[in-house]
Design a protein around this nucleic acid. Structure first.
Lengths: 223, 223, 223, 223
DNA sequence: CATGAATGAGTATTCATTCAT
DNA sequence: AATGAATGAATACTCATTCAT
């Protein structure tokens, strides 16, 4: 649960990278390459990034990059792949097994946990996510993988939860897909505004999250 | 109001391009180049697009591309610039002048008009918007322009409306910025799912919009 | 004797061009093209000059340049050719016919007339000469033409004069070729310093010419 | 004193290049590139030279040229820069320190040493000098550098010598600048005729130099 | 393992020249 | 005669990839 912690310095995603890479069998040079690649891909995009710059930033020779990653695309994939996996982590961990094991009593609790957790993850993996979002449109295989593995998995797992809460009468009787989309959009909109569009604003995260949850749960209509 | 129509074939954005380019004084070749550029930029991204491919797809010689657009970046800007402008169109047109002139009695009406109108625009300008979204991270000048001109304008205009409705007691007393973000996120989430992630699903747009508006207005809580 | 006058404004070589071009059968556009070509060739060199810039500076369409001069090289040659011819003008005019007709009593008089006249010519045709000097190394045909027509002609004509003066005992008994080279070098060195290296210095031309002639005639040895 | 030797084959300037380039740390390929560049620049001029031709003539791939010289202009500068420096060599070496250290008793001796030495240098560095002379008009920075560093240095150093000889009554009382110009013009005129205009003539260099010196010292007047 | 020199296909851009109007 | 749109070969330069050391 390394990514759960807060108060990380900006590029603490280095730790994520180790986890992502499969931990043990990575040499310091390989780690340096991955770190440099994340940096450069995030800044210039895959097509605009030069492997020579990555090598230089990693402090290795140009050829060394290709010793670890046969092609430039391999390097991209070995960054994006694990990042996609990590997006699923909280669901796999927390909801492992059946719905019955779910620790959440209300949808509100579930939402709160989800938003706080993923905001934290996004904060700590900002550059990785930036690459993910930037490159998915240009690599059909990545897109497929993303839709199939990530989106479908999330939708499926959350659907189970949502329907449980619906049955309990905790939430309104709207199509599950619309409800998920609505929740996820509102949450993502906040996370992206928070980290991407206005990162320098003086945010009170806890308060904002509560407002967000209130809006999702009660909408804009007055009591 | 060219972008208001529905049921366009996939690349009917060609018409948009004509309007975007300043209409009358464009030669067929220039139009072909713009169309080809939109196609290729959307598919491969600016950095990954080859001017030679654009020329080939446009059916002109490589040199011809540069007769009309001095640089590759000029070509990008002459696509993105007008697109940004068009994003503002409904606000400028419909809410011209003061808030008092607003034709909307309720926030719900306003929301509905906004979502329908922009969904339609997005449908007809899908590739243009894709380029816009994809390239903004890599061109600081574009980002600035976008934030300053587009986002600030929208936020400002919508703020006025929202506060008017808040005064009327039509919507809850939440911070305006959070309310706007919430509304916009929900709307954008729908539009992107509709067009980007599941374009092939059999959507009933009118119904979906009504559900979406209901969710925004009442949230997920049961009556 | 148009080129004999002094006090010309900087680009009075326009008149030269008319004379050079064969005068009568040139349209205003052709003249404009030639003038523009001289300007651009002098500034950027033949290889670095763009015909489009020449056309623009001449105020004509790009195609028009090629109506008058089939190729870019034609344009260069039609500038350089006549300029080479003009270099010979004073000899052909003044020494027309036999040596006996020569109007000069002493080599000193001849030198003085030559230097003053050619300095004036150089002043009024500065750009033309610049082109000549710059391009001759790169166009073997031009070089041949220059050596054969210009240099040999000058050497031959001056040889006759020089030998006459040598017979008269007016000048020392050195090989004619060395004497010519010596005189021409000293004169050219002054002209180039005067116009090319230090054009802004406050020159007293008459005095300088007298010193130069004294040096050529008497060398550096003290009286 | 590498450049002092005579009887070099045509492109023995290769040795110069090694010295010019900083000697030791040049790979064979880099040397080949420099040699090819000198060849092509001399023949076609900087603007008319194609890097592809340089690469081909050097027997390396196009990319290799740019490994060693980031731009085409870098390549030019790395040829011209050291050549300019070498022009000053004899003054720096021979007249190091003050005028008092000068090894020459008479201006004639000084002239003779200068002409012989520089003729030899020009012979061995013909193409390098050709490039220098050809490109100076088109590169303002080169011109400045040349005037400031080379010309001014030479003029200054020679002025000191000349004035010393003038005081001794060895040479006439003409303005120093005119005397230098006169000497240099006569010498350069000979060197250029010797190497550029009539390289194939059967020259007796020693005799020619003596005549030249006599002309500079005593002019054309008979004894 | 690691290097970095070498490669050559690929890129954006320029420009002399042509030709339909 | 004059135009200027169109061309496409040529140009300087980049970069992912290979390979001998």
């Amino acid at each position: 649960m390394a990514e759960e912690k807060t108060d990380r310095s900006d590029d603490q995603w280095a730790q994520e990278l180790l986890a992502i890479g499969g931990e043990e069998h990575m040499t310091p040079k390989q780690i340096a390459i991955l770190k440099a690649a994340v940096e450069v891909f995030a800044e210039k995009g895959y097509a605009g990034a030069a492997t020579s710059e990555i090598a230089q930033k990693a402090g290795v020779a140009e050829g060394t990059v290709f010793r670890y990653y046969k092609t430039k695309k391999d390097l991209l994939i070995s960054i994006i792949g694990p990042t996609m996996g990590k997006l699923l982590a909280p669901f796999i961990i927390r909801n492992f097994g059946s719905v019955l094991n779910s620790p959440y009593e209300t949808y509100e609790d579930f939402l709160r946990a989800f938003i706080v957790n993923r905001l934290d993850f996004a904060r700590n993996n900002f550059k990785l996510l930036k690459i993910l979002v930037q490159e998915i449109p240009f690599h059909p295989s990545l897109r497929e993988q993303f839709v199939e593995n990530v989106m479908n998995t999330i939708v499926e797992k959350v659907s189970l939860q949502l329907e449980r809460f619906k049955e309990k009468g905790q939430i309104a009787d709207v199509p599950t897909s619309a409800a998920i989309r609505f929740s996820a959009s509102a949450a993502l909109g906040f996370i992206m505004t928070r980290l991407l569009f206005q990162p320098d604003k003086d945010w009170n995260d806890e308060e904002e999250v509560e407002i967000l949850i209130r809006l999702i749960m009660h909408g804009l209509s007055p009591k």
